[in-house]
Each structure stands twice: as structure tokens, then as C-alpha cells.
Computed example of a mutant assay.
Amino acid sequence: MANSYFQFKQFRVEQSRCAMKVCTDSCLFGAYVAVEKAASVLDIGTGTGLLALMTAQRSQAKIKAVELDSEAAKQAAENFAASSWANRLSVYSGSLQDFENINKESYDVIISNPPFYQASLKSPDNARNRAMHTTDLPFSDLLRFCQKFLQPTGFLYLLLPPHEAQTLKKIAPAYQLFLRQELPVFTSETGKHFRSILQFQLGPVLTPEVLSPIYIRTTNNQYSEFFQQLLRPYYLHI
């Protein structure tokens, strides 16, 4: 039987009650986003709390997380409490739309690996559907929130599949959010483009920067050097 947790160098992520488990692309995302200088961070759709914990490890920020699924929110709270950064981590159990109504803060960095399937067939697992499909969190609601609560000099980071990334990039300017940088992520040197990391800011960008693609694995099915450099502070066996 597989472990009900994922052990990192400085923290453990229990995930038995979460629909979305720890996965490689989320770990890459959490290691990549620039949070070192942030004083306040918001993780939208935290699930297990993975991104918030990765952020806490390499920053001094106060980190809030939002999670719609009540069981996942409870597990994230437990993961936060068991970490070395419990005093800087908190989770709101409920929808982003409800959190928007009570939130009084703005954030230097907002990060999210949001639900992204818009018209795909759903599975029998309702919790997984909520985590994967945009029904409960349309892109428009996500962007509206970020327009209201991102600091003027702050950044929004999103992890999305390529098709959904294109969709979001088209509607983001209507919310005064403009693409600053895009990083294509490939499964391997000969694999497919399966994720994009997008960085947005408030206010126009003259020329968005499209970075050279990164590859999770080499042709020999080993972790790439770039991936190893990013994840070395986190993974036990790198």
C-alpha cells in the first residue's frame, strides 16, 4: 500500500483525505515561484497545503490558504500545525467567493494551481471534480479576486495546462492583470508540453517574457538538472 503521506526534507504532507495528492508539477511550481521577499502570500485552492508549506520553507512571509473542500482544509490545517512554520500558516475552509467577502488584506504574492477543466467529462468522485473542474471557481472569479487583493507591486502565479493557460491569458487583461512571464513545462526532453507557469502583474507589460522550456525528466528518465536544482531543498533523495 502506498504511503498516506509525502515526506519532504523539512516537512511532511499527509494527504489521505485530499482528492488531489502531491504531484511532480505542483512541487516544481512551489519550488519555482519567487516568494523569498514576500511579506504576505495567499495560496488559493491549497489542497494538502503543499504550496503554502513550500513557500513557508524559503520565506518569512505570513501565508494564508483557501480550500473549498472541508476535509482537505482540515488536513491542510493539520499539516500546517505539524510544521516548523505553524505560526505563519493558516487556512480558510470555504470558497474563494466567500473568502472574498471577509478578506481585509492584500498580498505580495498570490499562488494557485486552480481547477482548470471547463468542459471535460467528470468522474464519479465529487471531491476530485471540485479540485479539477472550474464549476466552483471560474477563472473570472479567480481573476476578480486577484485584481482586488493583489498588492500594486505584487505578482500572481498560476499553474495551468497549455490550452487553459491560453484561455486565461486572453481574459486576464479585463481584470487589469497582464502576463509578465511564461514558463513552458515539458514532461521530458522528448515529451509533451503539459503545464505552463504564468506570472501576472497589475498594469500593462510592454513585452511578456516567454522563457525557454524546462523539462522534468531527461531522455534517460532521470530528473533534469534544472528540476534537481529547484527541488534539492525539498526532496529527500535529490
Rank of each mutant, 00 (worst) to 15 (best):
F6M: 03
F6K: 10
F8V: 00
K9T: 05
R12F: 03
V13D: 02
S16G: 09
A19R: 09
M20L: 15
K21Y: 04
V22T: 08
C27G: 03
L28C: 05
G30I: 07
G30D: 06
V33D: 03
V35W: 12
A38W: 08
A38G: 01
D43C: 00
D43S: 02
T46R: 00
L53Y: 01
T55A: 12
T55L: 06
S59P: 09
V66R: 05
E67R: 03
D69Q: 15
A72T: 01
K74S: 09
A77Q: 12
E78T: 10
E78G: 08
W85E: 07
N87E: 15
L89N: 01
V91R: 01
S95E: 04
F99K: 02
N101E: 14
I102Y: 03
K104I: 11
V109R: 10
P114K: 05
P114A: 11
P115A: 09
Y117P: 03
S120A: 15
K122Q: 15
K122H: 11
D125A: 03
H133Q: 07
T135H: 13
T135P: 09
D136A: 13
D136S: 15
P138S: 11
F139Q: 08
S140G: 00
D141N: 14
L142K: 09
L143W: 14
R144W: 14
C146V: 14
T153P: 05
G154S: 04
L158M: 12
L160G: 05
P162K: 05
K170H: 13
I171D: 14
A172P: 14
A174T: 04
A174F: 15
Y175L: 04
F178P: 01
L179P: 02
L179R: 10
E182A: 14
L183Y: 11
P184V: 10
P184E: 08
F186W: 09
T190R: 12
T190Y: 09
K192V: 12
F194E: 11
R195T: 07
S196D: 15
L198Q: 07
L198M: 00
Q199R: 15
T207D: 12
I216Q: 01
R217P: 02
N220T: 11
N221Q: 13
Y223L: 06
F227Q: 10
L230Q: 13
L230V: 00
L231P: 03
R232I: 06
Y234M: 07
